[in-house]
Design a protein around this nucleic acid. Structure first.
Lengths: 353, 353
DNA sequence: CTGTGCAATTTGATCGATCAAACTGATGCC
DNA sequence: GGCATCAGTTTGATCGATCAAATTGCACAG
């Protein structure tokens, strides 16, 4: 196999020097149009491609960003991160960036991996997903001045106006708020919320969206609303039994809003046919069984993440300190996908144990 | 931020030359143990990491492999490729390889992307998924002597004994065969098969698994078996209506084996509760609704793919021509995950249109 | 006519590693 | 002693690109 052409070969073919070829590729405005055309013709005829590693060695930039792929996505909703990954890859490609994957067993290991990738100059920026309160990863990245953006708010004191790092996120409050309002408008009054326990920022945010909508429009007393507030770990069985407990207690429920499609599936199993349920994430399952769901605009989220990382110039991945005074975060509003509410329902069959 | 240490720095600290440091890293057997320890100590104390791009420039190897991420995975079963990606990343990591993603709009575009990544020395091997009859990608890769392995048989004349390239695959015949036998053993005689139309190698292979099992054990006449053979595009609605047509025609059906969990979900919607259905891929949905399903051993598949690509030495990605006489493919047997067959069933509700 | 300024292009040095060849001692053999 | 051998180590060259500084050519003011 013949040696691949280099800038020198192209320059030779076009009758110019290697640097001029380099300029045509990186700073076309420096080159006289006539020369540029000659060079471009030579590039095309030789089918020249810049050698990425050589460029990286010299520029100390890799135009590659790293993202961690979780060991094994959890349940149905795991596909959200996969879809985000799809979107990120496409958007990165459109901006001339590459996406490199890595795995890690825990946050400390992830820091080690990040460090390795960065020191090897393999990657010059990172996208973090599934961030949490006082995430050691973000602290480490800030300290070490590594460019990164998180999908998920820092959930700190004043994350909106004075964040410590770049972030993009989806406004879960508004998604659940819209969903709840939609159900209230359709005639329901007792709309239950089935969400995660504990205090993940995302979970609390979504729950607040429901509570605010209920307080504003349901006309129910606060303690009645409280009774409709359910907590369950993210699983079909868990969601199902949480809701069934409520029903067994004789509480009236007209509709259910859930923090995930997984919980929503559980809710559908527990409720009678005809009780509308709204999920979250709009996974393929929701589509398959005709479940209304809140869809996150992942393509826009991915695009936003990259735009923040690339900075206003949009040419290179820049660190936090070099950022301009532009907004340093983006919050996207999700969209409620309404499906025929009761076209299909799930029921326990007779032979069930 | 201080400049990162280089081999020269390490050599200086250890009192040896840069090349010795390089040897410690790449050919430790050439270095005297005492010297090696000194160098290793220096590496640790300086926290030295080799600069990946510099190494790649010199060696013309990237230790990175590329894999295409489909634009948007189709339906429920799309998650299989995602899970394969997870497994591949983990296995690659264990072998010192990195995984880089790319996207493409069609096979021609994919070839263009592959060419770009390879010319840029970003990637030195590829993993192809979703291969099909006379795939232009494999032909191009073979012609251009690019190392690659496919997840999916070439489905050529003699793919098993004299394949044209490296491949790994899962034995769909055996998976469906096992599933069908399982149902027959549970007392069913009229086991229907709901698979894809057309002539994808994978689809035909799975269908054959059912037909062979039925011929061997059901005791039904060939034309009776034929009537139980259904075709539908991969969708819940499509699967559902195909099966309903059969039921409306008054054909007896004791159980259904499907080519995917998506079709299986459709089948569950169409059949009465109590008719066991087996899906394929063991997606999260199957787990959620208690659907038996055939699980592909994706971790092993990923490991096999890498082992083939790395060759017997296991040190570097080698092209086809340099392969030894070792087997050039791996076929893995899937495993039937049996779940409580009718714990939960899906039925159309009253308010359905 | 000379020199300044500027645009366009070229040349030399460099990024950090590895390859290939040369070197250094120590050993052993005739 | 003289010389080949060999393990262990070092030096010079190189991969392909970009940066920084030097150079060329040309227009124009003094």
């Amino acid at each position: 196999m013949a040696r691949l052409p280099t800038v020198t070969d192209v320059g030779h073919a076009a009758g110019v020097s290697r640097q001029t070829v380099s300029n045509v590729l990186n700073s076309p405005e420096l080159v006289k149009p006539a020369t540029r055309e000659k060079v471009e013709a030579a590039i095309a005829s030789l089918n020249y491609r810049p050698h990425a590693s050589a460029r990286r060695l010299r520029t100390r930039k890799s135009s590659t960003l790293g993202i961690r792929l979780d060991p094994m996505s959890n349940g149905i909703s795991g596909s959200v991160l996969d879809r985000f990954l799809h979107a990120l890859t496409e958007q990165a490609d459109a901006r001339g960036l590459r996406v490199m994957l890595f795995t890690a067993t825990d946050p400390e290991d992830e820091i080690r991996q990040i460090s390795r990738l960065r020191d090897g100059a393999d990657v010059d920026g990172f996208v973090l997903t599934s961030t949490f309160y006082e995430d050691p990863r973000t602290e480490w990245l800030i300290e070490n001045d590594v460019p990164f953006v998180t999908f998920g708010r820092p959930w700190g004191i004043d994350d909106l106006n004075d964040p410590l790092h770049l972030w993009v996120d989806v406004d879960g409050w508004s998604g659940v708020h819209d969903a709840t309002n939609h159900l209230l408008e359709s005639g329901a009054t007792h709309v239950s919320y089935l969400g995660w326990p504990s205090h993940s920022g995302t979970g609390d945010d979504r729950r607040r969206g429901w509570r605010d909508a209920m307080t504003e429009r349901s006309g129910l007393a606060a303690n009645t609303i409280d009774r409709l507030n359910l907590e369950a770990e993210d699983g079909v069985t868990e969601g199902s039994s949480a809701l069934r407990d409520l029903l067994d207690a004789g509480i009236q429920i007209d509709a259910v809003v859930c923090a995930s499609d997984t919980l929503a599936l559980g809710a559908m199993l527990a409720t009678r046919a005809g009780v509308p349920v709204v999920g979250y994430d709009n996974t393929p399952v929701a589509d398959a069984i005709g479940l209304s769901s809140v869809e996150q605009p992942l393509t826009e989220v991915a695009a936003g993440a990259l735009d923040l990382l690339l900075g206003p110039e949009g040419r290179e991945i820049v660190g936090w300190s070099e950022q301009s005074t532009e907004p340093r975060h983006r919050l996207y509003r999700p969209r409620l996908v309404v499906r025929e509410p009761t076209a299909i329902s799930l029921t326990r069959s007779d032979t069930s144990r």
